[in-house]
Write a protein that binds this DNA or RNA. Structure first.
Lengths: 201, 201
DNA sequence: ACAAAGATTTAATAACTATCTAATTAGATG
DNA sequence: CATCTAATTAGATAGTTATTAAATCTTTGT
């Protein structure tokens, strides 16, 4: 994780209105007008804050007709915090150690792929350990085109190349921020948003 | 933890210069001029940032002659993060659940004291589990007077009422923010700074 | 296809914050 | 006490951010 990411994560949480917003969302999804009313601010203010929270990947959005529903991104909420301490303490180490870590991660990654994928490139089964699951999901999702939108049917077909349980995997793609859905179409998220095992303890 | 605390914690970390400052301190303690030089800012700027970090209890300060040495407060750095998630998720719950938790905590606290203290009020031994250690330390430190300063000798004598290893316990008092040392004298910190097991996972 | 209603976004402004220079305080030392 | 060193305060400025009023975009009824 680089400096800017850490800063924008903390900036996102460094505001009373935004924190109250997250508390409200902990109850379940809400749209902009509802939030504005409960928070005692104008809808425009909610848009502004939503943008900040989105940049830090702390919320998800779902469009239905002309209203946008916000919800918590539990994954980032839990994991970004630990990343800060990592950043501060690891920052003190020499470059060499970081590179050694990168090498180590590549090794782990390769071994996970080798273990969970057949020679023909099929997924044997979905790993249950989060770390391994993320590696496999990233591997699969890399087969999709950046910037292009897909119908649900297309996505299902694509996933079936790897595994029959396309519903589960499609859901995991969304949950871990590899893709997002908008107006019934699916699209890859920018890579910086992808949930990566490197950021886990 | 209340809203303001959470906000000021994140505000403290929501700035590039302050984060770089913490990274430098991860290497060991530094005074203001050193920090200014390494960061490429004026001493005045360092003072400004130190104030923000101090408010969030992320650093400690020690005066020697006329120079002030800053160091990391490892405890808060590690534990404040988890508190944020707690705040967001717990905030959504009803009051009742919080009170139930308070009751539960009191029960645990009493049982720990009963287990580690003799009938005569001596400490059998220092708990190794952080949670339990904090409970015991808070129990002991409560015997000191707020606002009064103590010499090291006085502190040692006081601790010996409970346990022979006064050196270790004195160090723990500082480490967990129950007390601070200034010009060879010891004094209680305000209670809000005390490291408390309730804030642990 | 058009107007009204509903929901969100843009543009302007007011409040805040990081940074610097200059002046001041506090402690140590000859 | 004069001087040196380190840190803080005050005042000024530039850049950033929270908030709102007005404009834009979406859906729906006619």
């Amino acid at each position: 994780m680089q400096l800017d990411k850490v800063v924008s994560y903390h900036k996102a949480l460094a505001d009373t209105t935004r924190l109250r917003m997250l508390v409200l969302l902990a109850d379940g999804e809400r749209n902009g007008l509802e939030l504005a009313e409960k928070l005692g601010v104008t809808p425009a203010t909610v848009t502004h804050h939503a943008a900040k929270l989105r940049e830090a990947s702390l919320i998800n959005e779902r469009r239905e007709k002309n209203t946008i529903y916000f919800s918590l991104n539990h994954y980032f909420l839990k994991n970004s915090a630990a990343a800060t301490a990592d950043f501060i303490y690891r920052g003190a180490n020499a470059r060499g150690e970081l590179n050694a870590m990168d090498a180590e991660q590549t090794k782990i990654r390769d071994s996970v792929i080798r273990n969970f994928m057949t020679k023909e490139g099929k997924l044997k089964h979905i790993p249950s350990q989060l770390k391994k699951k993320l590696i496999v999901l990233e591997h699969i999702v890399s087969g999709l085109e950046k910037g292009r939108t897909y119908t649900e049917k297309e996505i299902n077909e694509f996933i079936k190349q790897y595994h029959d349980d396309f519903a589960t995997i499609r859901r995991e793609f969304i949950m871990h921020q590899f893709m997002f859905r908008e107006q019934e179409r699916y699209e890859l998220n920018p890579e910086e948003l992808w949930a990566r095992w490197e950021s886990l303890a």
